[in-house]
């Protein structure tokens, strides 16, 4: 009996610590200034089609302080890898060393996939995301909507919760979203450190979001 009570108590305590840590990691994200120490390692989630086009527009604007760049692509997506490589080779690098890598993980949600089966495939994708994020240890995750963002951001959050590294989560909602957030956006809104929207109607509905006009 005492053992069971002890186990329950330990479990509750762990949950409590987890929640406190989660809260601390999410709330203090704004104080994290990885750029002050040197180059910022970025993990970029390249979705598919329009998502990839939009995220590469954003990457184009970032200076060489954002190095290295690790691109993560869903493994059913054939087009994105080509787009990323074209983009990176057009980026004029003064040094010859390659500053980017490409990684593939299983897609966590196909378009129109049901919510319940999405949960299963997201858990499957998490299996691949965790080791990848723990190995790369980026300073920042940049994503804009494909479902693949969710397990990667969860893994990034876990690095912070375990006290290993605070990863700044930057989410940019697609320009296609005018009145409502995407499913991924709704999930990542509470945990992202900087959440950008591109229409004022969304900023009015989501007070934490950042609106700088259209940015892609």
């Amino acid at each position: 009996m005492t053992f069971v009570l002890g186990a329950v108590f330990a479990g509750l305590l762990l949950c409590f610590i987890f929640i406190i840590r989660l809260y601390a990691v999410v709330k203090t994200g704004h104080k994290s200034k990885p750029g002050a120490k040197g180059p910022v390692a970025v993990l970029v989630v390249a979705g598919s089609g329009g998502h990839t086009t939009e995220i590469l527009r954003l990457m184009e604007s970032l200076s060489s302080s954002y190095t290295p760049r690790h691109y993560v692509i869903a493994d059913t997506d054939r087009m994105s890898q080509e787009k990323v490589c074209t983009f990176e080779s057009s980026k004029q690098q003064s040094d010859s060393e390659t500053q980017f890598t490409i990684h593939r993980i299983p897609r966590s949600r196909e378009v129109r996939q049901s919510l319940s089966s999405s949960v299963v495939s997201t858990l499957n994708a998490l299996q691949y995301s965790l080791p990848l994020v723990f190995r790369l240890r980026p300073d920042m995750v940049l994503c804009n909507g494909p479902g693949t963002c969710v397990p990667l951001c969860a893994a990034a959050l876990l690095l912070g919760i375990l006290g290993m590294k605070k990863v700044v989560i930057v989410y940019v909602e697609s320009i296609c979203r005018v009145q409502t957030l995407s499913l991924t956006g709704m999930i990542l809104y509470p945990i992202s450190d900087y959440f950008f929207v591109q229409w004022s109607s969304l900023r009015d509905k989501y007070p934490k979001s950042i609106f700088l006009g259209r940015i892609v």
Binding site: R57, S65, V168, I175, Y194, L212, G213
Partner: peptide, 19 residues
């Protein structure tokens, strides 16, 4: 008019402390 990704970059530079 095209979107202004530079506004995003400027914001992020400042937020992350990039000089």
């Amino acid at each position: 008019s095209p979107g202004q990704p530079q506004n995003f970059a400027n914001f992020l530079d400042k937020a992350l402390g990039i000089k």
